[in-house]
Design a protein around this nucleic acid. Structure first.
Length: 758
DNA sequence: GGTCGTATATTTTTT
DNA sequence: ATATACGACC
């Protein structure tokens, strides 16, 4: 098989080892996708039926690309391989088999917004305080439980969990979890976690089904194995139990999804589950220069929990990593936009050779502005995706409700949209009536006259008739997704409302809806899709990833802007890693434990290893947030990088600092009271023991008012004492040991707001 | 009962 | 900046 010629020894081994459990540890840039593609092609050439290969990827796009690459090696058979994300593959299986669990094949998929809205409603119904039972917290706990396969009953029965929740002052958490699951079930809906959780239940309780798929899938392969959670792992393990042909590919150093349940232990413990496991390490990096690999290794080496690995490269030494220091986020945008502009000219590159990577989506703003100003083409991946826009979700909610009248969240969204005079009170009456008679909301709405408690008059009847007419199209006339959707969009009045809105935003919204209809048309016209029904379309839409939106092949030459998370698996000649500021990257939200710090470090590692030739890292000294400018300190990660490969590239002025208004979230704890008493005084008082040291008081030549050993308070980090002061020209840094468990921090004194305690 | 305007809280990453 | 909550007004 001549396609194997270009492979190095471990790669070739990995491709040819096709019987029994195999784990491939693939360092960054080591040709992982290549191995996986060739391995699959190799399997098929050795007589394995493509229908019996299950290849689970991280995004739908990765699946599509891999399918394409396999096709170029072995041809048309590639389209018969079962490939896709865990969520999409098992959603498909649940559509066939979900009846055994009490779901119909039309079940809705609740996105995060739907889940949140349901939780909000439940918290209200159960008279709980929404300041204590915060939606995100509750959703997180539910999601964690599901990902660890803890049922509501088990949750309620566990004394450990109960203690935890009592300690966290959310004792009703278990009840909430239970009612959340019940309501989802009644709505014939699954949330993202359910797609995996219910698959596990299905395989646990229906051995005939499990057996069927165990024999169907003779080879199971999992890409990005480091980012699977327990629930996903158990599914693959069960599926592979008969044939034992399981192959997982991953890199523990690139595990960056712990926040959604990914468990690095999966990869660290894999050997325990398969005693006859073969492990192959791919350690040669073909992507990046020596300098980039060295800097990446220097950061990841600090992590304790990891598999031993020695990533090296035979590539050229390459340029040093440039550190760019900007005055503000706008400044950062300007510097980077002009650097891109010049580098393209000088090095003869394309726009698409550049990527700007950031930690949070909100950071894209300043780069967009500066890129636009220089007429640089760019595209943004992620953020508010097309399918999350209000107008799109509105149309989709109609469609969802037409397919599944139990879908409560869709119902809530459309019942008074466009405004038809059915307000909160009427809706509440309807749901109370429904609960009283133990029937669905739709039952009440569609037979409103039979339920005297919820008389709502003509508008409710009209709504019911409208939905009934839509149902007719789907169920009786068997119209395809496009015909139904375009009719619904018009007849519901949504399109008319948008059309009448002549503002710029209104026009954009109108076009977005047209765009949605186009997408549905494409779905219907595509030969790959055999099932052109509305419910199939809805299912595929709700599982789309940010990376999945297909771009216009005609103008591909664009600078890419995205989060580090969505950059996983990609590579670019020149990478700008921006916003390297303390609390932003590493993220303040994230840092609660050593494990969290290590995950942020892995994220940093992922970002660095995206770069082939040139890496530039920037930070801003102040940044807009909630419309305010706040001060920032450079990230501790910069200190962790191997400094022999670094150079300070650009230092900007502080043009915008004149409008500086620090964000003061809290007041200050009065010194006489103990900090734990948390008696917050709204404003710092003049006659306290604090001395405010504002940045403007520091001048180049001034002796600092600060001394080593002195106790200070920082507006964000609390109390601390100064360990060391460093004065190098304009750089004035203070190493401060903070008391509240955040440890030592290095603050740039030109920006740190410190209160000196006398 | 519905809608409009004002006050308030929110800060992460994604299937 | 933006989304939600609540109170005043229609």
């Amino acid at each position: 098989m001549d396609f194997l010629d270009g492979l190095n020894e471990p790669q070739r081994q990995a491709v040819e080892y096709i019987e029994g459990p195999l784990m491939i540890i693939a360092g960054a840039g080591s040709g992982k996708t290549r191995v996986l593609t060739y391995r699959t092609a190799y399997l098929i050439q050795n007589g394995v039926d493509p229908f019996s290969i299950l290849l689970l990827t991280f995004t739908n796009k990765a699946a599509g690309e891999m399918r394409h690459r396999i096709e170029t090696v072995i041809g048309g058979q590639a389209k018969n391989i079962w490939m896709g994300t865990f969520h999409s593959v098992f959603a498909k299986i649940l559509r066939f088999e979900g009846g055994k669990l009490g779901y119909t094949s039309n079940f809705s998929i609740y996105d995060t917004d739907d889940s949140k809205s349901l939780i909000r409603a439940l918290v209200k119904e159960q008279n709980l305080d929404d300041k204590v039972y915060k939606v995100n917290l509750v959703l997180n706990r539910i999601s964690n439980a599901k990902n660890r396969l803890i049922s509501p009953e088990q949750y309620l029965a566990s004394s450990i969990v109960e203690q935890e929740d009592r300690y966290a002052k959310i004792p009703m958490m278990g009840t909430l979890y239970k009612s959340y699951c019940l309501r989802c079930f009644q709505a014939n809906a699954m949330d993202f976690d359910d797609l995996l959780y219910q698959t596990n239940i299905l395989f646990r309780d229906h051995l005939d089904v499990l057996n069927k798929y165990q024999h169907k899938f003779k080879h199971v392969m999992v890409d990005e194995f480091q980012d699977t959670n327990v629930s996903q792992y158990l599914i693959t393990k069960k599926l592979a139990a008969v044939n034992r042909n399981i192959c997982v590919v991953g890199d523990d150093a690139q595990s960056i999804y712990a926040f959604r349940g990914a468990d690095i232990q999966n990869i660290l413990n894999f050997e325990r589950d398969y005693s006859d496991l073969k492990t192959i390490k791919l350690e040669e990096n073909y992507r990046s220069t020596k300098a980039i690999v060295a800097v990446a290794n220097s950061i990841i080496a600090r992590n304790k929990s990891q598999l031993k690995k020695d990533v090296f490269t035979s590539n050229e030494e390459g340029e040093q990593i440039e550190i760019i220091r900007a005055g503000s986020d706008n400044d950062e945008g300007r510097i980077i936009a002009s650097t891109i502009f010049e580098a393209r000219q000088k090095d003869g590159l394309k726009w698409s050779d550049f990527a700007i990577l950031y930690r949070t989506n909100a950071q894209s703003r300043s780069f967009e502005e500066s890129l636009r100003r220089l007429n640089i083409n760019y595209r943004i991946i992620g953020g508010l995706s097309f399918y999350q826009r209000k107008e799109i979700k509105d149309v989709l909610a109609y469609l969802r409700f037409v397919v599944n009248q139990n879908d409560e969240e869709a119902f809530k969204r459309i019942i008074n949209l466009p405004k038809r005079g059915i307000g909160d009170t009427s809706i509440a009456k309807i749901s109370v009536t429904a609960a009283e008679h133990k029937v669905s909301v739709w039952e009440v709405v569609s037979h409103i006259n039979q339920y005297p408690g919820a008389r709502g008059g003509a508008s409710i009847e009209n709504f019911a008739d409208l939905i009934k007419s839509f149902k007719l199209l789907v169920e009786v006339e068997q119209k395809d997704a496009y015909e139904v959707a375009s009719h619904v969009a018009k007849a519901s009045g949504l399109v008319r409302e948008l059309y009448e809105d002549k503002t710029v935003e209104g026009l954009a919204r109108y076009q977005n809806v047209q765009e949605l209809l186009n997408a549905i048309k494409q779905f219907v016209d595509s030969e790959e899709n055999e099932d052109k029904s509305l419910s199939t379309f809805l299912q595929s839409v709700s599982l789309l990833t940010n990376a999945d939106t297909n771009e216009d092949p005609n103008d591909r030459d664009k600078v890419t802007l995205m989060t580090v998370h969505s950059a996983k698996g990609l590579e670019f000649k020149n990478v700008f890693l921006v916003g390297l500021e303390e609390d932003l990257f590493p993220s303040q939200m994230m840092l609660q434990s050593q494990a969290d710090l290590e995950e942020e470090r892995r994220l940093f590692y992922v970002a660095i290893t995206r770069a082939e030739k040139k890496l530039m890292i920037s930070y801003a000294e102040s940044r807009y947030q909630f419309g305010r400018l706040k001060s920032c300190e450079p990230s501790r990660f910069l200190d962790e990088l191997d400094s022999t490969y670094l150079k300070m590239a650009k230092t900007s002025g502080k043009k915008e600092i004149s409008s500086f208004r620090p964000v003061q979230k809290t007041g200050f704890v009065e010194k006489s009271t103990s900090p734990s008493a948390a008696q917050l005084i709204q404003k710092p008082q003049q006659n306290t023991n604090y001395q405010h040291v504002p940045s403007s008081d520091f001048k180049q030549t001034d002796a600092l008012q600060l001394k080593e050993g002195q106790r200070v308070e920082h507006q964000k980090f609390g109390f601390g004492s100064i360990k060391k002061l460093e004065i190098n020209g304009a750089e004035r840094k203070a190493h401060i040991v903070f008391e509240k468990g955040i440890g030592e921090k290095v603050l740039l004194l030109s920006f740190a707001k410190l209160m000196v305690i006398e």
